[in-house]
Write a protein that binds this DNA or RNA. Structure first.
Lengths: 187, 187
DNA sequence: ATGCACCTGTGACATTGATCACTAATATGA
DNA sequence: TCATATTAGTGATCAATGTCACAGGTGCAT
């Protein structure tokens, strides 16, 4: 399990055993059942999560009670309501398990401690953050430039496994269309 | 001019004179006329840009030659095609001046040099990147959950000055609607 | 001052996607 | 195993937005 975290980090920065021990000591492990909430809108967000196994969705519920999926988080992904996490305020989004999921948890204190005491980890987080930013920008572009059908096809191409793991209803919510419209795209 | 850059950085990390000298030595200044391109789709992206004054748009041109504005960059903002910048590949987007604009330029080498030799700058970039990521995620949420009218109102609330500085056509392109639709939202 | 490019508003119509209603199929839990 | 909830597909209709066409206004360059 910790090998997974280690090799994930070492894809970006090398750590010796001692360094990794220190890093690891700042994480805790948690396991959640399918359909369990890791946190809900309105709660304080105390941790950022690295997904060891399972599948999460980050979702927002609007004033008409419609759910919108901001992102899925699969194995090897980091997820949280990062605004709430970094500002230590209450979540506007919820994090929900689509499958039984195991995560490593990192508190903001630990995050900051690692950044200041293990420079390589600051580099690691910087790289991750840059990639996250670029990914979000791609998603914006996709929402601006393509219709439902094209977005669906892009998604299938990029994450073919998702189709097996989540319901069409969830996919529709991620793509920003109603489930009925999604259903009609391939019929 | 360099005071502007310095106080921008010092909003996040303190630098002494010596440190700032070193930082500054990695930037170069450039000035662009209104309507000039800083880079175009297909070109290599060698710099990231900090806007001292003026206004930029980052845009993508789709296969039907429609322009989509991914973001505006006003005073104190950083902008580039960050995917192309970090991977040193060709731009898929273009960066264009909506006004006469002065920028500080930072090459990827300089960026990396600063990150490794001036830890505070790595902290600075990490914080910037996190904020950028959070901002993008807000934008995704806005595109997923609101219609054209609400997005327009959100934009006016957040950046009231934009309305004075850019044409409605540009605003529409940022909001992801046709200019005709935008025009009808307030009539 | 003249001409031209660009911006803006608006009518007519087409298209996309949302909503509501219903049915069937599948999965889940007691 | 049975009851119930969830999921998926589809028709009918409606609302939002796009597209095309045109006209008037504004500002810039020669």
């Amino acid at each position: 399990m910790q090998e997974k975290l280690r090799s994930h980090i070492e894809k970006i920065v090398r750590l010796n055993d001692e360094e990794f021990e220190l890093v690891l000591s700042h994480f805790s492990i948690a396991e959640f059942r399918k359909n369990q909430f890791i946190f809900k809108e309105g709660e304080k967000v105390k941790q950022a999560y690295y997904v060891v196994s399972g599948l999460l969705k980050l979702l927002y519920t609007d004033s008409s009670a419609n759910q919108h999926i901001i992102s899925f988080a699969m194995e090897d992904w980091w997820e949280s309501d990062f605004y709430a996490y970094f500002t230590q305020t209450k979540a506007t989004m919820s994090l929900h398990c689509l499958e039984k999921t195991t995560v490593y948890c990192l508190s903001l204190d630990s995050y900051q401690h690692l950044c200041t005491h293990v420079p390589k980890m600051e580099s690691f987080f910087l790289q991750k953050s840059n990639l996250g930013f670029i990914g979000s920008q791609q998603r914006i572009l996709s929402l601006l430039t393509t219709n439902a059908k094209e977005r669906y096809e892009q998604l299938l191409e990029r994450y073919p496994s998702l189709l097996q793991r989540v319901s069409k209803t969830q996919l529709a919510s991620y793509l920003g269309v109603s489930r009925e419209t999604l259903s009609r795209l391939y019929s």
